[in-house]
């Protein structure tokens, strides 16, 4: 009896295999993304309707630490939430162990690739010569 319980705890406690954390954090990240997407859509789509976002405007915005943090937070939560969503698809619709392993590994790789891509894209911006409106 004791060993059976012990085995149960070992199998499911802290192993990360139950998916409980992923399930819960999908809700948390979703609510956080709701706030972030409102800011993103407001600044990129509604703030100046009809105008084209030029390189100077975007680069000037990304030169500030605040927007760097905003965009990085947004992209990290969006990637985690989206790829965890893909993992839910895999759990529900892919039934062969080989394909599950392959697809999980693939989207781990894609996620890390896109995270690095986001860091490389967002971090280097500084105020361009001639100011942000130049």
């Amino acid at each position: 009896m004791a060993t059976a319980i012990r085995g149960f705890i070992d199998r499911y406690n802290g192993s990360g295999k139950t998916g409980a954390f992923n399930w819960f954090f999908q809700r948390i990240s979703g609510v956080i993304l709701l706030v972030l997407i409102v800011g993103h859509f407001y600044i990129e789509h509604f703030y100046a309707p009809g105008t084209i976002p030029t390189y100077n405007v975007v680069a000037g915005r990304l030169a500030s630490l605040g927007w760097k943090l905003f965009d990085l937070t947004f992209v990290i939560f969006a990637l985690w939430h989206g790829i965890n969503g893909i993992f839910e698809f895999i759990d529900d619709y892919v039934h062969s162990n080989g394909w599950r392993l392959f697809l999980r590994a693939l989207f781990w790789f894609v996620g890390i690739l896109y995270l690095v891509l986001a860091l490389l894209t967002i971090l280097p911006f500084s105020v361009p010569q001639g100011g942000i409106n130049g």
């Binding site: 030029t54 990637l79 989206g82 969503g85 891509l117 986001a118």
Partner: peptide, 30 residues
Amino acid sequence: TGLLLILYLFLHEWLISSLQSKSSFDSAMA
């Protein structure tokens, strides 16, 4: 919609990250 959004995020970030110069960014935005 979730599937569409993650595919859109992949496309969106790939495009934005490839537009490192002023001329390529502004022509893509046009």
